[in-house]
C-alpha cells in the first residue's frame, strides 16, 4: 500500500523536456526503487505464506504516552524554548517510566537545564531556541 501511495506521488512530479532531462526524468529513479521494493515485498509475502507469525511483545501504554510526550516536546520547542521543554521532558519521562526518587529527578532536570542550554549554544549557536526565556537568556 505504501509503495502504491508513493508511486502515485511520483505521478505528481513535474516533467521536463527530454533534452533537459538528459534522457532520465526525475521520476525514473524513485519508480525504479519502488518497483524493486514491490518485487521484494511479493517475495517476502511468498516466503511468509503458510508461516505462523511470531508473537510480538505487547505495546504498553507507556510507549504511546512517551511517543506523545516526544511529539508534544517538539511542538513546545518553539514556544517554551529548549531549556524549559527539556526540563519538562526530563521531569516527565522518568516519572512516566516509574521513577519515584523525586530528588534524583530534580537533580537530573537541573543538570539538563544547564547542560542543554550550554550544549545548544556551543553546538548550534541558536539563541532562537530560548523561547519565552529569550529576554532573560539573551
Amino acid at each position: 500500500m505504501i509503495v502504491v501511495a508513493l508511486y502515485w506521488i511520483t505521478t505528481t512530479f513535474s516533467t521536463v523536456p527530454a533534452l533537459f532531462a538528459q534522457g532520465m526524468q526525475a521520476t525514473a529513479m524513485p519508480r525504479l526503487i519502488l518497483g524493486v521494493m514491490a518485487v521484494l515485498t511479493l517475495v517476502m509475502l511468498y516466503q511468509g505464506y503458510g508461516h505462523v507469525e511470531e508473537d510480538k511483545p505487547v505495546i504498553s501504554w507507556r510507549m504511546w504516552v512517551t511517543a506523545g510526550l516526544l511529539l508534544a516536546a517538539f511542538l513546545l520547542f518553539e514556544i517554551l524554548g529548549l531549556t524549559l521543554t527539556m526540563a519538562l521532558t526530563c521531569l516527565l519521562i522518568p516519572l512516566l517510566w516509574g521513577e519515584r526518587h523525586l530528588g534524583r529527578i530534580m537533580i537530573l532536570r537541573r543538570l539538563h537545564t544547564g547542560n542543554d542550554l550550554s550544549a545548544f549554544h556551543l553546538c548550534a549557536a541558536a539563541s532562537a531556541a530560548a523561547g519565552i526565556l529569550s529576554p532573560w537568556l539573551s
Partner: peptide, 16 residues
C-alpha cells in the same frame, strides 16, 4: 529512567 531523557536531549541538540 535517567539515561534515556539524557539521550533524548542529546538527540535534539544533534539533530537541530
Amino acid at each position: 529512567t535517567f539515561l534515556w531523557p539524557t539521550v533524548f536531549a542529546l538527540c535534539v541538540v544533534g539533530a537541530y
